[in-house]
Computed example of a mutant assay.
Amino acid sequence: MASDTAASTPRIGTLLPDHLNACLVLDQAALGGLWSEGQWISELADQKRPGLGLWQGDQLLALACGLLVLDELQITTLAVDPTHRRLGLGRQVLQSLLNQARGDGARQATLEVASDNAAALGLYGRLGFRTAGIRRGYYRNGSDALIQWLELHD
Rank of each mutant, 00 (worst) to 15 (best):
V93C: 11
G103L: 09
L89C: 04
G103H: 10
D104F: 12
A120M: 06
R91A: 13
A106T: 00
L89P: 01
A119P: 10
L98H: 05
L121D: 01
E112D: 12
A109I: 03
N117I: 03
L97A: 13
L121C: 11
G103F: 09
L123R: 01
D116E: 12
L121F: 05
A109G: 09
L123M: 09
R91L: 04
N99F: 08
G122A: 15
Q108N: 05
G105T: 07
L94C: 14
R102I: 05
Q92I: 00
L111W: 02
A101L: 11
T110W: 11
S96M: 07
A109W: 02
R91H: 14
Q108A: 06
D104C: 12
S96Y: 07
L111Y: 01
E112W: 00
L94K: 10
A109C: 07
L94S: 11
S115P: 00
R102C: 14
G105I: 06
A101T: 08
A120G: 07
R91C: 08
Q100M: 15
A119G: 05
L97P: 02
L94E: 08
L121P: 02
L121E: 01
R102K: 15
Q95W: 07
R91Y: 09
G90S: 11
Q108P: 00
Q92M: 14
Q108K: 07
L98F: 06
A109T: 02
T110S: 10
Q92R: 15
L89Y: 15
R102G: 05
G90R: 09
R102V: 04
Q108G: 02
L123Y: 02
L98E: 04
G105E: 06
A120E: 04
Q100I: 05
Q100L: 15
A101H: 10
L111K: 02
S96W: 06
T110R: 06
R107Q: 13
A118T: 13
A119D: 14
V113L: 03
L111M: 13
L89I: 06
Q95V: 07
N117P: 02
Q95E: 14
G105Y: 08
G105K: 09
A101Q: 10
S115I: 06
L94G: 09
Q95L: 15
L89N: 04
A106C: 14
N99Y: 08
Q92D: 12
V93N: 06
L98M: 09
S96G: 10
Q108F: 02
V113R: 00
S115Q: 08
Q108L: 04
G105V: 07
G103Q: 14
A106L: 05
R107Y: 00
G105F: 09
S96I: 01
L98Y: 05
Q95H: 13
Q100F: 12
G105A: 07
A118R: 09
Q108H: 04
L98R: 05
N117W: 03
L94H: 10
A101Y: 09
N99S: 15
N117E: 03
E112G: 03
A101E: 08
A119S: 14
A109F: 03
N117G: 03
R102M: 11
A106M: 05
A106K: 04
G122Y: 03
A106R: 03
R107G: 14
A120H: 06
R107M: 07
S96K: 13
A101F: 09
R102E: 10
V113F: 03
